[in-house]
Every structure is written in structure tokens, then in C-alpha cells.
Amino acid sequence: MFEAAGLMVFYENMLALNNVSLQCGENKIIGVFGANSAGKSTLMYTLSGIILDIRKKEEMAGGERITIRGRIVFEGKDIMSDKPSLRARNGIILCPERRRIFPESTVLENLRIGSYLATTAQAAETLDYVLTTFPALKRILKRLGGFLSGGEQQMLAIGRAMMAQPKLLLLDEPLLGLSPAIQYLLAKAIKEIRDQRGMSIIVSEQYARPIIPIIDHGYILENGAAVVEGSKQELLDNPDVKSAYFGN
């Protein structure tokens, strides 16, 4: 359903992604694990198309030259040259790292901004669903996004991405800086969303432990390259992966 092949991204002369290939089937959760600077965020930017936007801005400002190579096929079409907005229209929705909540809009407004691409009926139905999945948001619908706690913000960010009716949801470090209890809760919610709404999810994370139980397939990124790939069990059994990404 979704396939990226031979992705290479250079920031000037630095190789950020080195020949990364990745597949995501219908209704699957794919995990992408890696340390800081392994290329997780660049991968997410490339999959969602934001990288094209970054490249343009750098070009305008005379900054780094970003070179992108590779192929991304979504539902049988090559979308590599599609702008991020077009990819979003086609159902690839990014929930960005560090949440990027609109701080001066209320929770409800944030969610409604997300539903720009949805029909009124879809928006109403999804809003209901988001509030059932994250009941914590229900009490704070009128609060400004900037005043939420980290966990609430992350729920809101995932909710906002859901409102755009994704077929493929990209979650970039959704557990960043959250307590283990909330990490557990969010991981459960991500699985629930997949099970109940039927969408593919690619989730990137540094620390694999909270995410690994919910994934179907995983990739380990190191220095921009996918060094290990395998099903949940294969990753769990790999001793290198175990020591590096499970903290024991």
C-alpha cells in the first residue's frame, strides 16, 4: 500500500538518509527506531513531503542545499514530487515531532483546524471518536493549546492528525518527554486507533520498549541507514537491538 525505496537525503554534503527502503501494508503499524540524529525525523519529513518545503526555504535563504533521491509509492502512484499539502489530501498525515500545537487556539479549535480536509459529517464523527479515545481532552476543550501539559498536547496532536482522515498516519516521536504511564496510555491508544479506524501507522521513537508491543514490523535506523529490519519478534530476539533500544 505504501512503499518507499532507496530514499537518500543530503543536507549539503551530510548524508541524512542512506538508501532507506520501507514498506507499510494496509492496517499495519510500522515502528522506526533510532538514536538522535539517526535520521528518524528526516525520514518522516521525506515521507510526508515536508522536506520539499524545507528545501525550498533553504534555497530561498541561501542556506544548505538539500538533495533528495528515491521513490515513494502510495496506492500505486509515485508521489515523490507531490507537495506536502497534496500528500495530505491523498491521506498521508504527519503528526509532527514536538507536537506543533497551535498555542493560541483552543483545543476544540485545534481539532477543527485538523478537519479542514474532512467533510462536516466526517469531522463530527471523528471529533466524537477522538474525544472517546482521549477523554482527557473533553474537559479542556476550551483551554488554549499553549497551556496544555505535554501529555495533553500529544493527545491533541494525534487527535488533530486523526481529524484529517488519514489513510497513513505518520507519528514522529509521539512519546517524546512523556512519563512512562502516559507513554503506555498513548501506545495503547495508537493501537486502538489502528484497530478501530483501520489505517496504517508509521511511528518513530528513540526508545523502543513502549512502542514495540504494538508494532507489526520494525526498522532500526543508524546513521541514516536502515540496519535492521524485521517483525516484532525478530527485533525482540536480536541481541544488538535488545541492548541498544530496550535499555537492558
Binding site: 543530503f10 554534503n13 542545499r65 533521491r69
Partner: peptide, 14 residues
């Protein structure tokens, strides 16, 4: 996919 031909890219070196 960017303007260049083939599988080459322009490199900048100090």
C-alpha cells in the same frame, strides 16, 4: 528528482 540529470548531485566544498 531535482533539476539535475542522472544520479548525481552538486556538492559544495569549502
Amino acid at each position: 528528482m531535482s533539476g539535475s540529470k542522472g544520479d548525481r548531485r552538486k556538492e559544495r566544498i569549502d
